[in-house]
């Protein structure tokens, strides 16, 4: 028999995430998947799980879970206090949670999203090849609510001995390397210069769809309407207010605002952990 986790406290926004849905973008299906893929993979490796096994992604306030059988978990990503039945336990390394005990993942002390990996993985039914919650189009399990019960898969028989885990700290300044295009020519030369030289700040309106920024608006060379076109993960879209939005994993597959540049995918893990107000710089490279 495998374990089940009962949600004692769902937190502000806790979702199931794996590496996401591929191959359905032409049907309007976003990729989804863990925003901080690096943290998800490291947490899974520490438990002997396949790196892309489904985990829980919390937002700022953590969550609390009660297993009906003993489970082993890793809480990583954004640093936070972790407790089992009120007693502090280690963050970022495997921890045993006895049957009936409550694992409390506290509010982040830095960053935005903590990850809760369980040996065996979160075993909800996959939809189109992924267990990820897709907040844009509503595919996969809905965001966690108090009382929700999540099935756990069968743990790997041999768990790798944890080595020193190279967790990345949340950024104090977010540096996003970009390549111009596909619509850099829709902007004035002055806007292109501003984009790669000004300091923006992460907006509190950011979410799993996009990292919104505050800062100097980017002026378009013309104001024509862009017919809907496909959008990639990391696309920096510029809506009419001129403030760049970096598309994250739940982004729409097509859009009608010009994309000035694209952020390299490995840099998006840091973007997922950049709290509101964090300075952002876009650099060519």
């Amino acid at each position: 028999m495998t374990a089940k986790l009962t949600t004692v406290r769902a937190g502000a926004l806790t979702t199931v995430q794996d590496s996401g849905r591929y191959g359905h973008a032409h049907l309007g299906v976003p990729r989804s998947g863990a925003l901080d893929a690096f943290a998800m993979r490291l947490a899974n490796r520490l438990l002997g799980n396949d790196p892309d096994t489904a985990v829980l992604e919390t937002t700022l306030t953590g969550c609390a879970l009660q297993p009906d059988r003993a489970v082993t978990v890793v809480v990583g990503g954004a640093p936070c206090p972790v407790a089992v039945d009120g007693r502090p336990v280690a963050w970022g390394t495997p921890v045993g949670v006895p049957a009936g005990a409550v694992l409390d993942v506290g509010a982040v002390t830095a960053g935005v999203r903590s990850y809760v990996a369980v040996a065996g993985g979160i075993a909800v039914e996959p939809v189109l090849g992924s267990r990820s919650t897709d907040l844009l189009s509503g595919l996969g399990p809905s965001a966690l609510r108090d009382g929700d019960v999540l099935p756990v898969g069968t743990p790997a028989r041999q768990v790798a001995t944890p080595v020193a885990a190279p967790w990345q700290g949340p950024p104090t300044e977010l540096i996003l390397p970009v390549r111009p295009g596909p619509r850099a020519d829709w902007f004035t030369p002055a806007a292109l210069h501003t984009f790669t030289s000004a300091t923006y700040r992460v907006s509190a309106h950011s979410n799993r769809i996009g990292l919104r920024t505050e800062g100097p608006p980017l002026e378009r060379a013309w104001t024509g309407e862009l017919p809907s076109e496909g959008m990639v993960l990391g696309a920096v879209q510029v809506p009419p207010d001129g403030r760049p939005v970096v598309f994250l994993h739940d982004h729409p597959t097509t859009g009608g605002y010009p994309v000035i540049a694209v952020v390299a995918e490995p840099a998006l893990a840091a973007a997922a952990q950049a709290a509101a107000g964090t300075p952002v710089r876009f650099t060519l490279g």
Binding site: Y22, G23, A25, H26, P227, S228, E229, G230, M231, V232, T253, T254
Partner: peptide, 15 residues
Amino acid sequence: VREIVPGARTVLLDG
């Protein structure tokens, strides 16, 4: 190619 995404006057080839 991982994704072939047509738009109004474009086709995105991703992956």
